[in-house]
């Protein structure tokens, strides 16, 4: 990977972290409503994964979608504006934290019904197959989603119909407050792909370069073989499930152990081992991410609310 790409990935990871930290503050201040699920701790998964896609490859994910949105190229301004419910947001302020999308950036949404977007992902891939396109649909979901029926129906048809889907399970160890061991018959999620005869692998989701390499290989396989693939990224969310999480289900020691394994820290150390990257360059990137986050907050705060004309708009195309 060239230096420019590596630094861009570093910038995105730091930007996601800063945007969400500010988002959490704005949530506590009452400026963001509804549910908000932070991606903090999991940034390496989406960053490595989406860095490995071609622009024509589609991405669809669950409700923990701020990071995915930024990796797909949606600006921090639009993400922050959506969080604040402003008309300049990704979804004009009508979707909120869990529902960010950009057709232009080939990001087909954050979806908030657990598992509900997996059959839709199969449909995106079916549409591409029908139209003779060779792009891959990258569908991300949590470990919790692998226990619901949608997952199994979607994996089954993706295999039966030879759909180009890369299924990516972000195994962050907990579905809300229930650990994988307490919720899933197998704790290695990738094993579930075996039942469908689907190729699969497991990767360290805290190591962005490992995710990138695994994703690259998986995407190549999906594209060239015209078959789905399941990639399990083992990761951890440093914050609660959502903003209102008492976190009674895990110990501070456990959280601390993972936080010591911060994906941004790991990536920074890896980058500094490269001869052509300096600490000063990385510091500059961090400062730029900080400044861009500040600009995004200012942009979002200054943006107008959606007008009342938006209330009845887009219920139907034909009105």
């Amino acid at each position: 990977m060239d230096k420019e790409k590596l630094l861009q990935m570093y910038y995105e990871m730091v930007l996601i972290r800063r945007v969400e930290e500010r988002g959490a503050e704005l949530y506590q201040a009452g400026k963001i409503g509804g549910f908000m699920h932070l991606y903090i701790g999991q940034e390496a998964v989406s960053t490595g994964l989406i860095a490995a896609r071609e622009p024509r490859d589609r991405v669809i994910t669950a409700y923990r979608d701020h990071g995915v949105a930024i990796n797909c190229g949606i600006s921090a301004n639009e993400v922050m504006a959506e969080l604040l419910g402003k008309v300049t947001g990704t979804s004009k302020g009508k979707g909120g934290s869990m529902h960010m999308a950009s057709v232009e950036k080939n990001m087909w949404g954050g979806h908030a019904i657990v598992g509900g977007h997996l059959p839709i992902a199969a449909g995106l891939a079916l549409g591409d197959q029908y139209q003779g396109n060779d792009n891959v649909t990258i569908c991300m979901f949590g470990d919790g989603a692998t226990n619901i029926g949608y997952f199994h129906e979607a994996l089954n048809v993706s295999m039966t119909w030879n759909l180009r889907v890369l299924w990516v399970c972000e195994n962050n160890q907990y579905g809300m407050g229930t650990s994988v061991e307490r919720a899933s018959a197998v704790s290695e999620i990738r094993q579930k792909a075996e039942g469908y005869g689907m190729k699969n692998s497991r990767v360290d989701g805290m190591d962005v370069l490992a995710v990138y390499e695994a994703a690259k290989q998986a995407i190549d396989y999906v594209r060239s073989e015209s078959k789905p693939y399941l990639l399990e990224a083992v990761t951890y969310r440093f914050r609660g499930h959502s903003m209102g999480d008492p976190e009674r289900y895990r110990s501070q020691d456990e959280v601390k152990k993972w936080q010591d394994n911060d994906p941004i820290g790991i990536f920074r150390a890896a980058l500094l081992k490269k001869k052509n990257i300096t600490a000063a360059e990385l510091d500059e990137i961090e400062a730029r991410a900080e400044a861009d986050t500040q600009k995004a907050v200012e942009f979002a705060e200054a943006s107008p609310e959606p007008g009342m004309e938006e209330l009845f708009k887009d219920v139907y195309v034909e009105d």
Binding site: R58, W108, G116, L118, P119, I120, A121, A122, G123, L124, A125, L126, G127, D128, Y130, Q131, G149, Y150, E153, A154, N156, V157, T160
Partner: peptide, 26 residues
Amino acid sequence: PQRVKDTPIAENAILGAAIGAAMVGL
């Protein structure tokens, strides 16, 4: 078979896939 597509007995797969295909222009 592509335009008259038999599916498994899996209503979530049928309707989810139909929605996804509709989203990309079918």
